[in-house]
């Protein structure tokens, strides 16, 4: 069987593309870094891939608001390619800035796109880099988190607060910030940005489009964890399973 092909999107200001490629390679896929211009200008086709990743970074400097300008380019430059990609069974993963892009481009649609949803400034008013604990919603259809109960990952963002117009259906909420014991509602800094309902990651109605603020690609091996010099963490990091799940799903297509 040929390897699963992953398109790791690059745009001006993307900066987590290399480690995202590494994470997918660890999970057994072939991952290519592709610049948005190559897609818009037609040198690369989305349909040649099974997984699309919009990685972390500061695309267009977070100018206007984080992810806004790349989201605009998605809508105007790629048009129907992205919805068709999802319809055809492709997976989309948005990490950090990618979350912001997918939401603002309307690609991550909850309730058929009727749910008003966005990401805005952290309550602290600051960019913050810290490790957080999350619990996984086992009832969500998200294909990326199958078999995972909880995770520890780092966040590093200034605009990660999820704001919604209505209550997000439980099935769409994949990850919630929690304390070390797995309790939600633990407040800052466990919920690092003030996100409504402690939302750290959500998926669309199909479960094939998933986005999260924390960085799974930054925890694919044990020595990336801040506590590894104190206690046994194991060889693999929690984030790796997200990439493995995605590749396994795509292999079964």
């Amino acid at each position: 069987m040929s390897k699963v092909r992953v398109l790791v999107l690059r745009a001006p200001g993307t900066n987590c593309d290399m480690e995202t490629v590494f994470a997918f390679e660890q999970a057994g896929a072939t991952a290519n870094r592709v610049h948005i211009n190559q897609l818009v200008r037609g040198y690369e086709r989305l349909s040649d891939y099974q997984i699309l990743v919009v990685p972390g970074g500061f695309t267009y400097g977070d100018d206007i608001s984080a992810g806004r300008v790349l989201a605009n380019e998605f809508r105007m430059g790629l048009g129907e390619d992205v919805p068709r990609f999802v319809e055809d069974g492709g997976l989309i993963l948005g990490i950090c800035n990618g979350f912001q892009v997918l939401v603002k481009a309307g690609i991550l649609s909850v309730n058929g796109g009727s749910m008003p949803l966005t990401l805005t400034d952290n309550d602290s008013g600051r960019f913050e880099c810290r490790w957080v604990n999350m619990v996984v919603n086992r009832t969500s259809p998200c294909v990326f988190t199958k078999g995972i109960d909880h995770m520890a990952l780092p966040v590093a963002h200034a605009e990660g607060k999820v704001v919604t117009g209505n209550t997000v259906p439980d099935a769409n909420i994949v990850l919630r910030y929690a304390d070390e014991q797995g309790n939600c509602g633990a407040g800052y800094p466990h919920n690092p940005n003030g996100s409504m309902a402690d939302i750290a990651g959500i998926c669309d109605d199909t479960g094939r489009v998933f986005a999260l603020m924390p960085h799974p690609e930054r925890f694919v091996r044990g020595t990336q964890h801040p506590q590894w010099t104190r206690r046994s963490i194991g060889e693999q990091g929690d984030g790796l399973r997200i990439f493995q799940n995605a590749v396994r799903w795509a292999e079964s297509l």
Binding site: C16, M18, F127, E128, C129, A156, Q224
Partner: peptide, 16 residues
Amino acid sequence: RQYDHEVQGGSVLKPL
């Protein structure tokens, strides 16, 4: 905390 000390995925021993 206001610096990203995790990007590029290489940090083994962090500042904190």
